[in-house]
């Protein structure tokens, strides 16, 4: 069994009035099946309201299914006895760095989660050091988080999750509020955790540029999984992506426009280098 598995997952936000009568039902996730293999880097793309954040919240049991089942490392998220174990297995990083920092010194913030898990003090300090190093933030360990940039704060948040030694880390639009440098730093950190520490990564994002290095891309629309495949497979379907309110990187679009004009450019171009080579080879 994979790291994360969802079987026929349905989730409904049910709104009730003061007497408890159902006022409205909003089906945010509609019969989703996904299977994430251990050690993979999986990206979930989708427009606002497509259900991707609701999906993320199921992975560490912040939400539990209305119908269907989610397993994290074989544990059913509905099993309340396993709650702590599930949350330790799948760590979560959110969009706004300012909402996730709680301590006044970076290293204390990073140790907070591990401390709550009851890890012995000495072990906590070893873990804090290791995770700060992995996130490239070791030199800031004695700094105040308030004085850090957005990208640095996000990396501190990631280090805090890493100190809990999760097998899987779920990131819900971690770069949405960052500038280009911050985005690059955070993505680099995520990629390294996946490669070096073998952490399974589930990255939720709007930015297509961020998913070109993923092993697999899942596209969601109106609560359903509508596309699944490698970044190349997904990005070769420019028109379909546009239909789901997503946009492709400029190079992919340029390649697509050229192939529409009859030039023999391969489908699913992802980088500047690939496009330049493709143009050069047909000239």
């Amino acid at each position: 069994m994979g790291m994360i598995k969802a079987h026929n997952l349905v989730f409904e936000y049910i709104r009730r009035d003061e007497e408890g009568n159902v006022e409205s039902i909003n089906r945010a996730i509609d019969n989703v099946n996904i299977d994430v293999t251990k050690g993979d880097f999986v990206a979930i793309l989708g427009a606002n309201g497509s259900g991707k954040s609701t999906m993320a919240k199921h992975i560490n049991a912040i939400l539990t299914p209305t119908e269907g089942t989610v397993w994290v490392n074989g544990m059913d998220t509905k099993n309340e006895e396993k709650l702590w174990e599930i949350r330790q297995t799948a760590g979560m990083v959110f969009q706004n760095p300012d909402n996730q920092i709680i301590a006044t010194v970076v290293e204390e913030d990073v140790g907070f989660g591990a401390e709550n898990l009851g890890v012995p003090t000495e072990e906590i300090w070893t873990r804090v050091e290791e995770s700060l190093k992995a996130a490239g933030m070791l030199e800031y360990r004695h700094h105040s988080p308030n004085k850090l940039s957005g990208g640095q704060k996000q990396r501190v948040a990631i280090a805090g999750i890493m100190a809990m030694k999760p097998e899987c880390i779920v990131l819900d639009e971690p770069t949405a509020m960052l500038d280009p440098i911050g985005r690059k730093e955070v993505l680099q950190t995520i990629k390294e955790l996946n490669k070096k520490e073998k952490v399974t990564v589930l990255l939720i994002t709007h930015y297509m540029e961020e998913v070109i290095h993923a092993d697999k891309v899942i596209v969601m629309d109106q609560g359903k999984v509508v596309m699944q495949g490698t970044p190349r497979e997904i990005f070769s379907k420019v028109d379909e992506l546009k239909q789901y309110c997503l946009a492709v990187p400029q190079v992919t679009e340029l390649a697509y426009e050229l192939s529409k004009k009859g030039f023999a450019i391969p489908k699913g171009i992802l980088t500047v280098k690939e496009l330049v080579e493709a143009i050069n080879s047909i000239a």
Binding site: D179, P180, I181, P249, Q250, V251, L254, V272, K273, L275, V276, I279, N280, A283
Partner: peptide, 20 residues
């Protein structure tokens, strides 16, 4: 200074360097 040009500007520069 932490910024960049649009992706296609890079493509054009690369092509230009190759003699296009």
């Amino acid at each position: 200074i932490g910024l960049a040009a649009p992706q296609v500007t890079y493509v054009m520069n690369e092509l230009n360097n190759m003699g296009f």
